[in-house]
Every structure is written in structure tokens, then in C-alpha cells.
């Protein structure tokens, strides 16, 4: 408890140091159905500025659809998304998403991929973002010569170059091997601690959610089945007792939710 307190003090001093860019997000009664099938069922939750939340659920539970609504690629049938109290109904410059696939443009160099949408004026920001993910020396390479993990780091840099105050992560580590995945998690955590954007991570991996998030939202059939606070000290260790207990709890909960399939 004492340790948790120290961490909170540290982060709040960080928050004061560089003006917190994180936004407050409120999702109110979001509904969406495709061809009669309900995907989001009056979904409501809210996120504090600078909070890191993880959405966990089986395939088809509406996780990706939720992200597409939050980023503004799709409009809901009913309900609304409020960002800092403002209704959000289209794409917005403060919200960026990192996809499961790297989605780099193969015909642009690494640097030009990162500066996409920023133009020439964004080159310094793009270079800084590349340096932040440790790939400054690959700026002039083609994406085709990078490894899967490097490509995903470039795609993270591309999101960071826009200095988003709301970052959505759509299973960005799903296709990486175990070691690269751990590295990537550490990198995302570091950058989040440094910049304090509001972050929403969609994932299948309960361990990943516990490693990164302040809070785990379990989604089932387009509804929130459970909303769980993760009050562990960072950086979190997977072999810690509390970590294991929480992981078992969440996993058991998911198992009971849909008969052993995830």
C-alpha cells in the first residue's frame, strides 16, 4: 500500500511537469448492429484523463467495433462518445489508433510512414518519435526490410508523432512472438508513463492487460460484463503473487462467461 502511494505521488508530479495531454472519455449508451446482429448493446463507461484501460473479451464480442467508434471510423446507431465533454462524431486529430497489423505503406520509407499526415512540417516530430521507439537509424529504410517487431514499433512511432491525447491500441502485439511482445509492452508502458495520454488497449491476452492497464473491462456480447481495477505497482512483474491472483481471477471469470472458449 505504501509503495502504491509513492507511485501515485510520482505520477502526479510527472503530470504537473509536462501538461497532461490525456483526455477524458465518456461513452454513453453506444449501440450498433450489423444486419440485425447486435454488436454494441447500450455500452457505457468513462475514462479519466491519462488512464490506461484494457478491454478483454472473446473474438466477436464487439471490441474492435468499439474502437472503430471511438476513433470515428463508424457512427453509432444510438448513443454518443464524449471527449472532454464534446460530442465526437468524426475523425479527430487528437485520437490515433495502432492496429493489429502494422499497416505501413510499403512504398514510403520508414520516416515518411511516420510523418504520414503531418507533411514536411512534421519531420522533426517524426524523427523524435522514431528515436523514442529506438529506430532512429532505420529512418531511410523501406518497411519491407524490417522485422515484424520493428514494423510494429514504426507503427507506434507513427501514432506518437501526432502527439495524440487518446491512443487506441487494437491488439497491436497479437502477431508478435513472445519476446518481442514483452519488449513492446515495456516500450508502450514507458511512453505512456512519459506522455500520459489516455490509452485504451484491446487484447486477448489477460497477462498483457494486467501488465499495462489500470483497469480491465470485460466485454461480453456488446455489454460490459465486469469492470476491474488493477492496483499494482509498476513496472509489474508477472511472477508477483498479486499479479498471478488477478490473472487467475480474470481468466476464471472469462471461462465461466463462455464455457471455456476465449
Amino acid at each position: 500500500m505504501f509503495l502504491t502511494g509513492t507511485r501515485k505521488e510520482q505520477t502526479s508530479s510527472l503530470l504537473r511537469a509536462d501538461a497532461p495531454p490525456g483526455v477524458e472519455v465518456r461513452v454513453c449508451g453506444l449501440e450498433k448492429s450489423y444486419a440485425g446482429r447486435i454488436v454494441l448493446d447500450s455500452l457505457s463507461f468513462s475514462m479519466r484523463p491519462g488512464e490506461f484501460a484494457a478491454v478483454v473479451g472473446r473474438s466477436g464480442c464487439g471490441k474492435s467495433t468499439l474502437l472503430r467508434h471511438l476513433v470515428g471510423l463508424e457512427l453509432p446507431d444510438a448513443g454518443e462518445v464524449l471527449v472532454n465533454g464534446q460530442r465526437r462524431a468524426c475523425l479527430h486529430a487528437d485520437t490515433r489508433i495502432m492496429f493489429q497489423e502494422d499497416r505501413l505503406l510499403p512504398w514510403k520509407t520508414v520516416l515518411h510512414n511516420v510523418s504520414l499526415g503531418l507533411g514536411e512540417a512534421g519531420m522533426p516530430a517524426a524523427r523524435a518519435a522514431l528515436a523514442a521507439v529506438g529506430l532512429a537509424d532505420r529512418a531511410d529504410d523501406w518497411p519491407a526490410v524490417l522485422s515484424g517487431g520493428q514494423k510494429q514499433r514504426v507503427s507506434l512511432a507513427r501514432a506518437l508523432a501526432h502527439a495524440p491525447s487518446f491512443l487506441l491500441l487494437d491488439e497491436p502485439m497479437g502477431a508478435l512472438d513472445a519476446l518481442t511482445r514483452l519488449e513492446m509492452q515495456r516500450l508502450i508502458e514507458e511512453l505512456w508513463l512519459e506522455r500520459r495520454f489516455t490509452a485504451l488497449l484491446v487484447t486477448h491476452d489477460v497477462g498483457e492487460a494486467i501488465t499495462l492497464a489500470d483497469r480491465i473491462i470485460l466485454l461480453e456480447n456488446g455489454r460490459i460484463a465486469r469492470d476491474l481495477a488493477v492496483d499494482l505497482q509498476r513496472p509489474r512483474r508477472r511472477n508477483a503473487k498479486e499479479f498471478g491472483r488477478l490473472e487467475v481471477e480474470v481468466l476464471e471469470w472469462i471461462m465461466s462467461m463462455h464455457g471455456g472458449f476465449i
Binding site: V71, L73, L91, R96, I97, R103, L105, L116, G117, H162
Partner: peptide, 11 residues
């Protein structure tokens, strides 16, 4: 998916 990405990144 690349077109979606481009839209999200403000093109």
C-alpha cells in the same frame, strides 16, 4: 485497411 489507416491519420 490502408485506406482506413490513412483516414485515421488525417489524410
Amino acid at each position: 485497411r490502408l485506406i482506413d489507416m490513412g483516414r485515421v491519420y488525417g489524410l
